[in-house]
Design a protein around this nucleic acid. Structure first.
Lengths: 255, 255
DNA sequence: CGCGCGGTTGATAACGGTCAAGACCCGTGG
DNA sequence: CCACGGGTCTTGACCGTTATCAACCGCGCG
């Protein structure tokens, strides 16, 4: 009888949400999934590493960034429990990004070849992987949208909203968010300098959107934050009916 | 005997590069792959549509954009022959983006369920799809990097370099590039206004990087353009040893 | 206590956005 | 063939947001 590394995992609930059904997970031997403890600052994988495993975050936070040879870097994602890392490496069989733990935590390393091997895995696993990748793709494109279209306060507002939404899915809704990342990582993610970020925090606080105490964000008014993203640059509320043209309307009645 | 929709396709070479091996392709019936002619401006799919097909571009250019309900939009990608579209829709079984033809062309619609059905498809197909998605993911993250880190001229330079590189892969290297998109779509993709884009084109021309004549870009000096991306904001070439602090240095000597 | 680090605040400058006008391109029609 | 017109693109002047540079604050730690 194999040991089941997931049998006593406190993240089973997240795994289920992930569609990694328990039956599926339990069918893997301990050789396929291995749980590792990580400390803040530990590199989980780095650019150039052979892609042998995917990583499932069980506990803690991880940043995923693109490091350029000239020393510049770009934080592309802040990952949290329930997220699957390493998908970027599938195409080239090598990781192209760097993943670093932001806090102490636990990460399940999943042997990629065993996972996708027809003999040992069920067809279902491919569907799950496809779905995860498709979702990751869309998430990145929303990030792209924010960088291209928002000003500094809107970027920060958008980040706070989506970060909270992800925590919410983990049933971690608290009225206070503790950000796992420092200001520098956040500036990279949001595409601004730390001074501008600091002022953006200050302005949101002045406007009664949030309350800031270092990495603790409290009294977050999500409705007000969302509203801010619907306002155009001249502070005119957007007129929906003027914007949505007839073809789209006909499409809606059609389906 | 089935008709083979790919038998006389002029893009067979690109399909091969895609790892859609001919044997694989020929094994699909005409019901799985269907080729459609599209005209400039045709919508290939739109946000909310059920994701029934993936689309392989055989000829022509396509823009893929995220349309927000408030009317704002963000061009996320310019696709060209050999690209596979619609991957964003896999997770939700619905398309989340909009794909619009920029020029007349041909697009192969591939029945997604038939493609991934275990009974009709080979295991190999999942590997190919994974690889395509992983690559798309990385490409988006590079775009993200550019938006977050480059000034307007650098963004344009970066776009020109990557666009040319993709044309090069299609063996379409010409000393003149004809851009398939108008300025408005390009401004959305690059996250700037049309005035700034116009000035960026002008400045690159003044600096002898390129020559611009409407959508025709000629005399492109790729080395010079690349060099521009390696320069930091103060025009000082990056000093590796100043930038890379001691912990990283120890890392370098370590590896 | 003094230092170093992360974060904030302030003054200034530059980049890019905005608004307005003009140039160019190209299809249409005289 | 040229004149017109509408849309697209470019140029110019001005202004606002954000980057830059510098000083300062608060806090943990040796």
């Amino acid at each position: 009888m194999n040991s089941h590394p997931c049998a006593k995992c406190i993240s089973r609930i997240h795994c289920m949400e992930l569609a990694f059904e328990l039956t599926q997970l339990d069918s893997f031997s301990a050789g396929v999934i291995r749980t590792n403890k990580v400390n803040a600052g530990d590199r989980i994988y780095r650019n150039g590493d052979r892609m042998t495993h995917l990583y499932f975050i069980r506990r803690g936070y991880v940043k995923v960034e693109l490091l350029q040879p000239n020393g510049r870097h770009q934080v592309n994602q802040f990952s949290m429990p329930g997220d699957l890392l390493g998908l970027d490496g599938i195409a080239e069989q090598r990781h192209l990004l760097d993943a670093t733990a932001l806090s102490d935590g636990e990460v399940c390393a999943i042997d990629f070849n065993a996972l996708t091997d027809t003999k040992t895995s069920k067809h279902h696993i491919h569907t799950i992987l496809q779905s995860k990748m498709s979702r990751a793709l869309y998430q990145t494109q929303e990030h792209l949208f924010s960088l291209a279209n928002h000003n500094s306060e809107q970027k920060l507002a958008y980040f706070l909203i989506t970060f909270q939404a992800r925590l919410h899915k983990l049933q971690l809704q608290l009225n206070t968010i503790k950000l796992p990342m420092n200001r520098e990582d956040l500036t990279s993610y949001l595409g601004m300098t730390s001074e501008t970020l600091s002022r953006a925090f200050g302005n949101l606080e002045k406007g009664q959107y949030i309350q800031v105490k270092n990495r603790m964000i409290s009294h977050v008014d999500y409705n007000k934050l969302s509203h801010m993203l619907e306002i155009d640059k001249n502070n005119h509320p957007i007129n929906f009916f003027a914007k949505i043209s007839s073809p789209t309307l006909s499409l809606m009645s059609g389906s």
